[in-house]
Each structure stands twice: as C-alpha cells, then as structure tokens.
Amino acid sequence: MSLNRVVRRGMTVAAALTATAAACLTAASTASAAPGIQLPNPHIGWDYQIGGAYTPPAGVKIVSRDYTADPAPGLYNICYVNAFQTQPKKEGDWDSDLLLKNSKGQVVYDGKWGEAILDIRTEDKRKRIAEKVNGWIDTCAAKGFQAVEPDNYDTYDRYQDLLDPSQAEDLITRLSQHAHSKGLAIAQKNAPDLAKDHAKTGLDFAVAEECGRYNECEKYTKAYGSRVYVVEYTDSGLKKACSAWGDKLSIVRRDENVKPKGHEEYVRKTC
C-alpha cells in the first residue's frame, strides 16, 4: 500500500501504517477460494499471450490465452474472453439489438480496437449476453483452463453517457457464478474502482493493464492482495510497476498488440 498521499507524522506512525498495509496484503493474498476453485499462486512468473500462443519462457508458471487457443501444459492457464465488447469485425456474430447504439441509432465502437460495444443496459440483454459468453466459458473449462478473464469490464467508464457501473457489475456477477459452477476461478480485468466490490461480484483475482503506469495497482491489491497480474505496454510503465510492486506482484511488459514470439512486434520484458 502506497503512503505517498499520507502526511508524514514521524517514523513511528509511518512504520505502523506500513505494517498495517503489509498485513492487509498478506491477508488478501491468502484468502481461500470457493470449494473446488484453484486460485493462481501470487508473485510468480507469468506471461500474457492473448494475441497468439507460443511456448512460455523459462520461469513462467501462469499464462493467459484466448479461449480459442489450447492451454499451456503444466501451467496455470487463464482463459481470455471478450465479455463487454465484440471482437474486431465480429459484431455480426451477435444479435443486432445487443450492440450498443447512440442517439442516432448508430452502433458504438471502441475506436482504438474497432470493437462494437455490447448493450448491457437492460436485464434481458445482460442475460442474453451472459448466455453467449458463458458458452465460451464452457469451452475454457472443457479445454482444461483453470480460470477465465472476461475483458473490458471497464467499458462503462469509457462510455459514461450510455452505461453505468451497476450494469457492468450485474453482468460480471452472472459470469462469475457460471465460471464457479464450472470449477473455474475468474479474474477482474481492469476497472480498478470496482475492485472493492469483488466479494459481491464473485471475482477471485485481478489482471490489471498498466496499473503501474497509471498508479492504480493499490486499488487491486486492497482487494486481492498479491494475486494481481500486471501487464504493462511501455518501458516507463514497466519501470514504475517494478519499482513500486516488483517484490509483491507478477509483472510483465508486452507489446500492445500482444503478438506471439517471432512476430516483428513481439516484446516481452519483466522486472
């Protein structure tokens, strides 16, 4: 837990605060999973391979891969699914009314990635979206993954004029319940401000993009202890994450498009 915003009152107070933070981190790190659910071990080597699978580097014990890929033998495998947005150019795979539309009736896209936003504003639509995503979660379980990572939980934060966090929490809760019923742990992907609600939503650990760069890692560690798996996309972000959290969290620096080893864009670094 960072003490950067705490007014200094002497070494005794600072030491007490540090001890309290360490105790909180340890308690969260050792929290028990639901019966039959295997949580990833904290602070061990990990790799982020959602853009294409490849042989994990030496020392890697945890890997995240797309649900269409196979898990890495002998490792703890996290299964990536896009739960709040479509994959690029895949909006045709969804019922048209499940695509979020603006006041002009136009489909809303995440401009950076070309992904259509899913419409989570009604209970009926959230139920139908969950049914489709849960089908992918079934695939994850059948392939032997140990956990699932539903992406874009934070979409509501980028489209606040159309979506709100309660809708996102309702959908993620549905996914959590289904994942647990299949024996899978489930990760919170981004949305640091919602980490405090993890007990309500059923989330077990966190996959955090650029929490070092944006000074958000503490929001996750308060909820999940050392079971926070950090992906940075810049050298400066990696440096910040490693400096503040390298002795507590699993941290990897990847290229932004998460290309497999051998591709010209491929980048992988650790602390």
Rank of each mutant, 00 (worst) to 15 (best):
A241L: 10
K219Y: 06
K104A: 14
K261Q: 14
E131G: 04
H198N: 02
I62H: 00
A241R: 09
D119Q: 13
I62K: 00
I251Y: 05
K90G: 02
A53L: 11
R121W: 06
I129H: 00
K125E: 04
S176H: 04
T173L: 10
R254E: 03
A16W: 14
R227G: 02
A22P: 05
K200E: 05
E218M: 13
E131S: 13
S96C: 12
R121I: 11
P40G: 06
K200L: 00
Q167P: 00
Q146Y: 08
L249A: 03
I50T: 11
R9C: 10
E91D: 12
Y233A: 01
Q188T: 12
D66I: 01
G92V: 11
V148D: 01
A21Q: 12
D95I: 09
K261I: 10
A185E: 04
S96W: 14
C271T: 06
Y214A: 14
N215T: 15
L162T: 13
P35K: 05
P40L: 02
I117D: 15
A14N: 14
E210T: 13
N152S: 12
D119Y: 14
P40E: 02
L203I: 08
W245T: 02
A83Q: 06
K261D: 13
G114T: 10
G202F: 00
G59V: 01
I37C: 09
G59A: 01
N4W: 14
T234C: 06
C140K: 00
Y159C: 01
K90S: 09
G92H: 04
V267P: 14
P71M: 08
I172K: 07
Q49R: 07
A58G: 07
L25F: 07
Y214R: 15
S96H: 12
F84C: 05
Y266N: 04
G114S: 09
I251T: 03
T234H: 05
P57K: 08
Y214W: 14
C271M: 02
D151Q: 06
T55L: 09
P88E: 05
K61H: 01
P56V: 01
